[in-house]
């Protein structure tokens, strides 16, 4: 059984609008894989579809992970399989505290078929310990967990909370959609540290970003470029540097020239 994330010829649309037009991409277990690409090229759409967003209509293709076609699973089943998405725009849920939300998420992961949820629930002391560790690594204040989920959070606070969730859920495949946007340089370093503590031979990471500066902290093994709903180029870390320096036009010209 492969723990690579394998995306095959994925087509997707929303309404009449075709967004993904044949995405082929493999994120190998134990690697950090970056996706770069112009605004509107379909990067967030791809990450949403990996996580199971109901608004997008998948018109073709497959996404394989741990022997499952993810497209056949509910979003929560995908999560419990080890897939995690750090949202570009995390969603606020007023009235639900961060602490209750995190506990519910952890307990959902610990739940076992045929067992009383009370039996598998995380003991309070263990939960507090995990939480304190995470808050510490991300340099977040304790008071944070009593606030309502993403409600009135600053951009940076939202991104930290995404990483906190990732640290608590310990996914085996994490998709980070522009986790760097809205972070100052100190926050960026802290968040990257959170990711790097988890990353390792067991984990695949797909990092979506516009900026090399994140990739200075989270070093990619592979860089893919998405344009107009397709992966148009794949390379090593040097490809990110080249894009940073030259922009996308040269690539676009190369591609149309080649066509």
């Amino acid at each position: 059984m492969s723990n690579d994330l394998i995306i095959k010829d994925l087509y997707a649309r929303i309404g009449d609008k075709e967004i993904l037009r044949g995405v082929n991409l493999t994120v190998r277990q134990g690697t950090i894989h970056a996706i770069m690409g112009p605004n509107g090229s379909g990067k967030s759409t791809l990450s949403y579809i990996i996580a199971g967003h109901p608004s997008y209509e998948v018109t073709g293709g497959e996404i394989w992970y741990k022997g499952h076609n993810l497209l056949e699973l509910e979003p929560d089943e995908r999560s419990r399989l080890g897939v995690f998405l750090a949202f570009q725009y995390p969603v606020a849920v007023p009235g639900v505290t961060v602490a209750n939300f995190l506990r519910a998420a952890i307990n959902a992961h610990r739940a076992e078929e045929g067992k009383d949820p009370k039996e598998t629930a995380i003991p309070a002391a263990e939960f507090r310990k995990l939480l304190r560790e995470g808050l510490n690594v991300l340099d977040m204040d304790e008071s944070f967990i009593r606030r309502y989920l993403n409600d009135g959070f600053s951009g940076g606070e939202k991104k930290r909370l995404e990483i906190l969730q990732m640290m608590l859920l310990k996914p085996s495949m994490a998709v980070l959609d522009e986790t760097d946007s809205g972070l100052d340089i100190d926050a960026l370093r802290i968040v990257a540290n959170g990711v790097n503590r988890l990353a390792g031979p067991e984990m695949g990471v797909l990092v979506i970003t516009h900026y090399q500066r994140l990739l200075n902290y989270i070093k990619p093994d592979v860089v893919s470029v998405m344009m107009d709903g397709r992966i148009v180029r794949e390379g090593g870390p040097e490809l990110a540097l080249e894009l940073e320096e030259k922009g996308y036009d040269w690539l676009r010209e190369e591609l149309t020239g080649a066509a």
């Binding site: 996580a51 509910e74 929560d76 949202f87 995390p90 959902a108």
Partner: peptide
């Protein structure tokens, strides 16, 4: 809100 539901589900919480 479908976005709230989706967000929570992506954390493993059943619908």
């Amino acid at each position: 809100d479908q976005e709230q539901l989706f967000y929570m589900q992506t954390r493993g919480i059943p619908r």
